[in-house]
Nucleic acid binder design. Structure first.
Lengths: 220, 220
DNA sequence: TGCAACAAAATTGGCGCCAATAATTTCGCC
DNA sequence: GGCGAAATTATTGGCGCCAATTTTGTTGCA
């Protein structure tokens, strides 16, 4: 009766899908770029069948887009959808504040402090992808205390989808520093056990991290 | 320049996936039941390949579950996950209240009134699936005015996932009547342009529609 | 020189076959 | 007669092949 464990998500397909998803996250493939199956099977040492399965999965997850008889390309999200994604993220991520404050313990707060410090360091010395990964780790660890796996999953799905926009996440060094500062403000709210303040900070963090105003130009 | 339309979601796969999803929604296949590929290709007159593609898609959407070398079965959501889904639904559906109130027009309110009346009728005369479909139509139409397609999509994804639980949605006739009454209370809040009240009603509607207390026993 | 039609190459995508694995039945032994 | 092991059957799943389609390149004509 104790043997209902093996809920194995299909090993190979999901594995490759995540590899490709990560490559997209790291901007190895840029929004709008075509993903040729032949290139992928060579790059990831996979069979054509696995590549196609993985691409199908990513298409369902809206990470990429499928055009019949043309292939798959990294999803480009238009401005309207991007704003919808941000609005949805604000709703979901704000909603974690209360339970995160309630459940997080001192050890976890210490670990978050360390991650915030890591981000501070990366702001000056690290590469763009390092900054991104540390930032991700910070928020992922914080949200993991909300006690709702379904919610978490949706948040990360949305964050991934948002990458497909033209908006550069930290378009200037000032914004990067602002993000850095806000991390510490969140830590303060956490330590003060103030969920309302944390929620407010999360909202501005999401909005300010991606400025809607002057859209930076992306060279083709 | 006007020809960037054909974002054709893969026709056949998605079509079959939705057919199967609907069958699951209508309880033609019950949670935990195995979906044999041979049966499906006969039932839906599709090739084995299409069946498998559709099943993969549904597995990514968490409507069904894939067990390697065993096949696909309708997802069974455990109690913990079910509560997480409800919590997430409350967050998302409440969040629509403000913009729905702001955007909905009188014609739409009239149409919603009609749907509420249809549901009232179905409470006494209709079948369980009729009730379910009308209820779905009511909420779908209402939420369609929130102006955020991403949000809507997530809401319907969660509602579908929730079907996999052991909980019977309207476990008694009283709960069905309660749902009916609440629809009219929502209409009143809409007409009064009171988003706060609407949000509160949505929350209780979700909680009360699926009682957590006395879990009804399902014969194996 | 520009444009259109045609030909060649490259890429995607449907599908059927058969090996691998699990479920079921049968058979033999205790 | 009950239990376990081996054989049989059923089902899934990996994969390669080739047709359909699109893109690129070329040629001929105005």
């Amino acid at each position: 009766m104790t043997e209902r464990k093996r809920k194995n998500t299909n090993t190979r397909r999901a594995l490759l899908a995540n590899e490709i998803a990560q490559a997209i996250r790291l901007r190895a493939f840029r929004p709008g770029e075509w993903l040729r199956q032949i290139d992928l099977e060579e790059r990831f040492q996979a069979t054509r069948f696995d590549v196609r399965s993985a691409l199908d999965e990513l298409a369902v997850r809206k990470t990429i887009e499928h055009v019949p008889n043309r292939g798959y390309r990294v999803a480009e999200v238009d401005m309207k959808t991007y704003e919808e994604i941000l609005a949805a993220r604000i709703i979901l991520e704000k909603a974690t504040a209360e339970s995160v404050v309630a459940r997080i313990d001192d050890a976890a707060i210490a670990r978050l402090d360390a991650l915030a410090a890591q981000f501070s360091a990366a702001v000056t010395t690290g590469s763009r992808t390092e900054q991104s990964e540390i930032n991700r780790a910070f928020h992922q660890f914080m949200y993991s205390f909300c006690g709702n796996a379904v919610l978490e999953e949706m948040i990360w799905g949305l964050r991934d989808r948002g990458r497909g926009s033209q908006i550069t996440v930290w378009s200037s060094h000032e914004l990067l520093q602002k993000s850095d500062r806000e991390h510490y403000e969140m830590m303060a709210a956490l330590k003060a056990r103030d969920p309302g303040r944390l929620a407010a900070l999360i909202a501005t963090h999401i909005i300010k991290g991606a400025p809607v105003g002057p859209a930076p130009i992306e060279p083709g």
